[in-house]
Design a protein around this nucleic acid. Structure first.
Lengths: 339, 339
DNA sequence: CTGAAAGCGCTTACAG
DNA sequence: CTGAAAGCGCTTACAG
């Protein structure tokens, strides 16, 4: 049968409080009783019931990871996976488990489910990844006191957050193309501009053009949709434009994969005819043809920092810097050559 | 402050048992009291504490998903992500949450952590993905009664399991190459042969050769290691062999990505000089150069079926077919052409 | 240093 | 149909 604390107490000849103290590493238990209790627990195969523990302690030692795109996005996106790995690594060190909670933006009851998750006390804190700037989740969160850390960067939102420096990364990518002599540079975003990352990357691109006194042409700035398919379509539009750009900054490697395919399908020579720079540095980037020049994000580090920040918040600490922007890095490969 | 069942009971002028019954949809509550309770709960913002509920009910409504490769593998592998998505979809419908638990095989305390997870009652059941055939986890599991479903196929192991039909899929892939006229076909496995999927895929490859009366040459059967890098290295070996094969079956798209790169680096013309067939049909497969012919696994369906089976087991049902092998499908693209 | 007791917030027979 | 009570398996002041 199921072994409880009482069984151990009886076997060790002590009260249940003492058993509890031993398992909670209380210093006020004698060496000897401690040994006796441990011995009894060992023999009975006792492990303290986590639900009982959570009930009485009022905390779960669980971190909920909420993804706000689609459920599909959470699992398929290679970048998100890395973030999740970082969250996992950091959480585990602190003794936290991870509850995976994809809440689709299109989910009818998405908001109720979030409140439920919070009020039913499933977790001690939550990390929310990738909400849109106009996400109803923000107003829902207003009334809750549970520690929350956002993965993303939301100007005007007071919540703690961790993100890559998308603006600067996009600027780096664009400056790289400018240095190669390109003057007409198109852009395909990673996703719709309701996502702040898409906006920040576009703004970085624009800033680089402006600083170089290059003209900005809205006709060659297109929205992507997180998928290769969307990159394929956007690239077709760029290829068909009257003044075809000699370089394109695609703000997502996944989208760039589609852009590359569209170019090839149109008989465009890469990188000779069109230079391409991606974003994210997914594991496959170096293996594409041509190998993709891209901007590497500290994906795993984002996850670690988000978890670290959240745990500090859970522990009642007041970290100083609660809006972190982590540095990105340009990785030059074969897809970007001089004009 | 925190609202409990007592607050609701007081406000509604009923006993706490009645409140509980309302929230558990007990039929034996009058329309009227039900309304009154719901109203009170609504006004107070009451949600039943999940830890208390779990303690008294003795079940958590949580499914633990355990990955037995490395933590990195869980998050990075595109195929695994799809499986996880399937698990999620099915679990959610049944009201289960998912606890993500990567247990590295190299983890010193991996086994203790598994026992702990079980005995501390973190979940009502567990799905274990990808253990090696000699995994110590199997002996650990012998003494436990918690429902378990394996993702994988383990001849000789009595535990319920769900997997793709790797043997048949590999046979399909190889037969496809044979039909194209290839007679010297190399193979690079997805991972080490301590993994049953690697063995099954190799056996499918061997079976196809045998049925076609083609010779088997161990010199051109190489182990991969789940990564593009491993495929790169293995392909280099194949390219350097005296009798270079005219086709290679690479039992993992991720590994194939590296094999393709190695071929290109060696100046080999694809698919002209060497035909390649992969396995898994990762989202990028169609976007590789050349587009990869591969074997599609019902990845999401594997996850769904595993979760479904596990939930049946949790509910005390005795499903008939507990060792499922799901069909695979050959997807012909540009990387495989006649000899 | 240790035991007995109260209590965490629920569910569920048990009476009525 | 409903309330009072016992109990789920722990932790934690409270005495000693």
């Amino acid at each position: 049968m199921h072994v409880t604390i009482k069984d151990v107490a009886r076997k060790a000849g002590v009260g249940i409080g003492t058993v509890s103290r031993v398992f909670n590493r209380s210093p006020l238990v004698s060496q000897e009783t401690q040994m006796r209790v441990l011995q009894a627990a060992q023999e009975l195969g006792y492990h303290p019931d986590v639900s009982a523990r959570r009930l009485v302690q009022g905390r779960t030692r669980i971190i909920a990871f909420i993804e706000r795109h689609t459920p599909r996005h959470l699992y398929v996106d290679a970048f998100m996976s890395q973030v999740l790995l970082g969250v996992h690594t950091e959480s585990r060190e602190a003794g936290y488990h991870i509850l995976l909670e994809p809440f689709s933006t299109t989910d009818v009851n998405g908001d109720n489910r979030l409140i439920q998750l919070i009020r039913e006390k499933h977790a001690d804190g939550i990390i929310i990844s990738g909400p849109r700037i106009d996400d109803p989740i923000f107003s829902t969160l207003k009334d809750e006191t549970l520690p929350v850390v956002l993965h993303g960067n939301y100007p005007g939102v007071a919540l703690p957050s961790v993100d890559a420096d998308n603006f600067h990364g996009a600027k780096l990518a664009t400056q790289h193309l400018i240095q190669l002599g390109h003057t007409r540079i198109g852009m395909i975003s990673n996703g719709p501009f309701e996502y702040t990352a898409a906006v920040a990357r576009r703004d970085g691109y624009l800033a680089a053009l402006e600083e170089a006194d290059l003209p900005i042409d809205p006709a060659i700035i297109l929205p992507g949709g997180f998928s290769p398919e969307s990159g394929y379509q956007a690239m077709q539009v760029l290829l068909a434009s009257d003044q075809r750009p000699s370089a394109v900054f695609v703000a997502s490697d996944t989208v760039a994969v589609g852009a590359i395919k569209a170019s090839r399908a149109a008989g465009v020579n890469l990188p000779g005819d069109i230079a391409i720079v991606g974003f994210d540095d997914i594991p496959w980037a170096a293996y594409l043809t041509p190998p993709l020049t891209t901007v590497r994000l500290p994906a795993q580090e984002i996850g670690r920092q988000a978890a670290k920040l959240l745990i500090q918040l859970i522990d009642g600490k007041s970290p100083k810097n609660t809006q972190k922007l982590l540095p990105t890095k340009l990785i030059v490969r074969g897809s970007s050559t001089p004009v």
